[in-house]
């Protein structure tokens, strides 16, 4: 039974806080320290927000070569603009929005556009043995690994809009809704309801495949 609550309020109950290891409130201070020459502050910014930039780039289905260059371009430009940011505390949104614009330029540059239906994304498990992978393999049985693959495959086959939104949302640490909004040019207020819809759709796909 659905209660009468408005869907837009749904995400307030999400059982974890968004904006993980680098507290988003600290970003402004880190940016100012980096401007003053503190390389450790810069590194903390990169480690805290790099995964967000990567997620935005991956949400846009570029070829690997384009994805890598866009990622670098975004950070080069961020370093260049470091001392000129009007709102240092919104560095995450600046990065997300810059990444989006660079991705759209790749689309426009049709010659370079290569839709990666990316079967090799799934192969990457065997290609590079990341620490996460070794950990996963060690701790969980092969069945669990298979579940992760299937989850990822169903995710990849979601409609483009849902796939894009979720790819940005699942950056680690989780981005704020302001950052998601900047990454995809959608209103902050519509992110929560869309997120619910997309996750429900994903769950339905998993269940219909008997993956539950």
């Amino acid at each position: 039974m659905r209660t009468g609550s408005v869907p837009s309020a749904a995400y307030h109950d999400v059982p974890y806080t968004r904006g993980g290891t680098v507290e988003r409130s600290e970003i402004g201070a880190l940016v100012r320290s980096a401007v003053d020459g503190d390389a450790a502050a810069w590194k903390a910014i990169v480690e805290g927000l790099g995964p967000l930039v990567w997620s935005v780039v991956r949400a846009h289905r570029l070829s690997d070569a384009d994805a890598h260059e866009v990622y670098q371009t975004v950070w080069f430009r961020f370093a260049q603009h470091l001392g000129r940011l009007r709102e240092p505390e919104k560095a995450g949104s600046w990065l997300a929005s810059t990444a989006r614009h660079e991705c759209l330029k790749v689309y426009r540059n049709a010659r370079r556009l290569m839709l990666t239906d990316d079967p090799h994304v799934l192969d990457r498990v065997s290609e590079d043995g990341s620490p996460e992978q070794s950990l996963l393999e060690a701790e969980e049985a092969a069945a669990q690994s298979e579940r992760v693959r299937r989850l990822w495959q169903e995710f990849e086959e979601l409609g483009e809009r849902c796939r894009q939104l979720l790819r940005v949302l699942i950056a680690s640490p989780p981005p704020s809704y302001q950052e998601v909004s900047a990454a995809l040019d959608i209103a902050v207020g519509s992110i929560g309801p869309l997120r619910q819809r997309c996750l429900r759709r994903l769950r339905a796909r998993l269940e219909s495949r008997g993956a539950a």
Binding site: W42, V46, G50, Y71, G83, S130, L136, A171, L202
Partner: peptide, 28 residues
């Protein structure tokens, strides 16, 4: 799904490093 992304589509370490190195481009 976040954990799956960390395993199947992680930020490549070389890219992370290139962003760390980009600090040198900061020129006041």
């Amino acid at each position: 799904l976040r954990q799956a992304a960390a395993v199947l589509d992680p930020l490549p370490p070389a890219l992370l490093q290139s962003a760390v190195d980009a600090y040198a481009l900061h020129d006041l």
